[in-house]
Amino acid sequence: MTTYLITGANGGLGAVAARELAARGDRVVLAVRDPARVTPPPGDTEVRRLDLADLASVREFAGGWSGELDVLINNAGVMAVPYARTADGFETHMAVNHFGPFLLTNLLLPHLTGRVVTVSSGLARTGRVRLDDLNWEHRRYSALGAYSQSKLANLLFTQELQRRLSGSAVRAVAAHPGVARTGLDRHFGGGRSLLMKAVYPLIAQKKAEYGALPILFAATEDVPGNAYVGPGGRNGERPRLERRTDHAGARELWEISTRLTS
């Protein structure tokens, strides 16, 4: 039996992935901010509390893990939320989408036997990681820009993690769902143009079930380290490996993230 840990499995892509993996007979741990609001899918499932916006919560969660973990799926995230800082002083997107998963992964590495799957976004291609201003302290805030930066950070994290795992049985891979209606985009459109507000709901009609397929593919199929899986086919029903190039700054981002989360 394979053990999966899925963050943000209370809804959207994470909930679909948890349901499908549990239906296969695997053990699935759903890590969510509010366990009382989650009904786990049938099967060998468990719900545990984890708030990725709070590094103390991440440490407590990881400290309570015992036994082997086959696959960690870093799925939880926020998108295009208004500017805010967490208790640790991080901009919200970077806290939830990058710093929290970064610390969680590193703390759980001694338990991991299979792979780390980190969920990025197609908008990573528009992102720019400002190593000198990761938390938007010295530039005008852009909710979409902050999201894109954090999603590109996911790819840099995967790239550097795989480099560090060289020679290990554990591999690091990434995936993105394309455009799917998951609830993550509820803030999207705020402050956007009237055209974007009108067009986005029309292009984001793909079901969460299709959006979860690249994540499931990355978690279960024999893909190489540093692979990037995205949707293929008309509705995203055929996951495929995306063309992947190494990004500059991956090692520097790792070093900064280590310092800020230490």
Rank of each mutant, 00 (worst) to 15 (best):
M1S: 14
L5W: 03
N10H: 00
G14T: 04
A18C: 05
L21D: 00
V28P: 10
V29C: 10
R33W: 02
P40A: 12
P42F: 06
D44R: 08
T45S: 12
V47P: 00
R48V: 11
D51K: 01
A56H: 07
A56M: 00
V58L: 07
R59D: 15
G63W: 02
G64E: 05
W65H: 14
S66E: 15
S66T: 14
E68M: 10
D70N: 14
V71W: 01
G77W: 00
G77M: 05
G77H: 06
V78D: 06
M79E: 03
A80N: 00
A87Y: 08
G89S: 08
F90K: 05
F90H: 01
A95K: 02
F102P: 12
L107D: 12
L107M: 14
L107K: 10
L112D: 00
G114M: 08
G114D: 04
R115F: 04
V119L: 15
V119P: 14
S120W: 07
G122F: 02
G122I: 01
G122Q: 09
T126V: 11
G127A: 02
V129T: 11
L131T: 04
D132G: 09
L134F: 01
L134E: 01
H138D: 13
A146R: 03
A146L: 07
A146P: 08
Y147N: 02
S148N: 11
L152A: 09
A153W: 04
F157V: 07
L161Y: 03
L161E: 00
G167A: 12
A169V: 13
A172S: 14
H176V: 02
P177L: 04
V179I: 15
T182R: 02
G183N: 09
R186K: 12
H187R: 00
H187S: 11
S193Q: 03
L195A: 12
Y200K: 01
L202K: 13
I203Y: 06
Q205V: 11
K206C: 06
K207A: 15
A208I: 01
A212G: 11
A212I: 08
L213T: 03
I215M: 14
I215T: 15
F217G: 01
T220H: 09
D222H: 12
V223A: 13
G225W: 06
N226P: 11
A227W: 00
Y228S: 09
V229L: 13
G230D: 02
P231M: 07
G236L: 01
E237S: 12
E237A: 12
E237N: 11
R238A: 13
L241F: 05
E242D: 13
R243M: 09
R251M: 07
E252G: 10
W254M: 10
E255D: 15
S257A: 14
S257W: 03
R259N: 05
T261K: 03
